[in-house]
Design a protein around this nucleic acid. Structure first.
Lengths: 135, 135
DNA sequence: TATTGTTATACTCTATAACTATA
DNA sequence: TATAGTTATAGAGTATAACAATA
């Protein structure tokens, strides 16, 4: 099929999300929850606004994702005295523990998605995607 | 950010769909309608089942996409005497005409999405994506 | 029995606007 | 006034199951 680049991106992205979500099912979270956990932990605590920027989603979406994670005891919202508008999202020990396992899972899924590529090709794709998907 | 390949694919795909849909707005269709038109015309008529396979979507989704296009007079459903279960989706002259314009639009959007890449890099990305997104 | 298309339904995702509390 | 977070809502996308017509 004479598919354009945008179509291939969209289709590959859909496939990536579905595959990862299926793999995440036993853990009771979905791919976006994983991303929130990942960003919050890597930053050592992160405002919801910054989470929205990092994930490229609306602040209102961040609210419900953090709600879900908080309900599961995986993150906490802390109010910072410096600016009492912002809520600093930090991981609990349970959140840190879960992220460790999900990181490995994420790598397995990435590998499965690119099963047809060798290591060099995978690295090339990753670097090109970074320049297209971010910024 | 330490983003995995799946995350970058998902994010790039989302960006591609949103950008293309915005560009398509004046034409009254969305990206999936474009894909249906494209596949149906390239195949010179296509069953709904095959459209679903080509687009990687459920048959029930194809129904509503073809409904939309038929309502706009862009495609027709023909019953084939050979197998009266299948509906052959073919483009009308108006559909062919629209596709011509949308093809150019799609190329512009693809170019915009990969604005940071040179021609070689764009070709490499396209070929790698084909192997990841299809099959 | 199996397949094509259809309908119905529920859930997720996306996008927007309006509101609150703080600055 | 502007910003961070929240709530509400509508529209689009996704996933499933059940059904009719036909093979």
């Amino acid at each position: 099929m004479d598919a354009g680049l945008g179509f291939l991106l969209a289709r590959g992205g859909g496939r990536a999300i579905r595959t990862f979500n299926r793999a995440l099912q036993p853990f009771g979270v979905r791919s976006r929850h994983y991303m929130v956990l990942l960003v919050a932990i890597q930053a050592g605590g992160c405002s919801q606004r910054d989470l929205g920027v990092a994930l490229d989603v609306d602040p209102s979406v961040v609210v419900s994702l953090v709600d879900d994670l908080e309900r599961e005891g995986l993150v906490r919202r802390e109010t910072r005295p410096a600016d009492r508008r912002t809520r600093l999202v930090t991981a609990t020990p349970a959140g840190l523990d879960l992220l460790d396992r999900l990181r490995a899972l994420s790598q397995r899924v990435d590998h499965e998605l690119t099963a047809g590529l060798d290591a060099d090709e995978r690295a090339t794709l990753l670097s090109l995607l970074r320049r297209v998907a971010l910024g």
